[in-house]
Amino acid sequence: MNSRTEQVAAFVLHSRPYRETSALVDLFTLEYGKVSVVARGVRRPGSKLRHTLQPFTVLAVRFSGQSELKTLHQAELAELLPTLTGKALMCGLYANELLERLLQPLEATPKLFLNYKVLLNDLLQSQDHEVSLRLFEQALLKELGSWSDLSGCHQPYYRYDVVQGISAVDEVASAHFTGDQLRSIEQGEYTDPSVKKAAKYLMRELLKEQLGDKPLRSRELFQPRSKERKGESE
């Protein structure tokens, strides 16, 4: 990729100011996976790119460079998606933080790119964001190679721990999931509310293992400021 690449489809994951007028932008591209680029002059007043380089829209970008940090040459809107707002926006930021933290630079993950697109579409259209997020987390874990097939879970009870992973147990007391729940999760069948709860726990534990000690900051956006504080001030 030393000469100028052709146009590739990309989403902006995150951008941070760089020097006086430039920005360092992390892109999630179809062909090259996560790519960091320098967008020169993007923070100048009147720069058109500034409006284009926003998260959650499909862009067509060109960049080049030999090192891991590329130079952005062009970015155009490929498809104008309606803007995410409210809770859907928070979920989008959560997905971006996951990708930012867990993807290896310059490793193509075309399937996950499509999963991400589907997630954004679902966030725009459906009210139940929980299921969309679970499906995306599952796709991400598969991509990272830390998802084991659950369709053979025919025992009644299972539990999860870091050392053994998912294993069958005899008593209900020490179980985290039932076999039925795990098989439903594998199939993406979320009609039963208990499956949602089980999936949330499972994904959280599996992701925790990938993320290490540093927790995800975007989870804080879903937690209300504590009510005791409100009491104090009154």
Binding site: L13, E220, L221
Partner: peptide
């Protein structure tokens, strides 16, 4: 900005 590590605690939201 979760990715930059800025959460509600870091602003004057309280």
């Amino acid at each position: 900005s979760p990715i930059d590590g800025v959460g509600p605690e870091d602003l004057k939201i309280d």
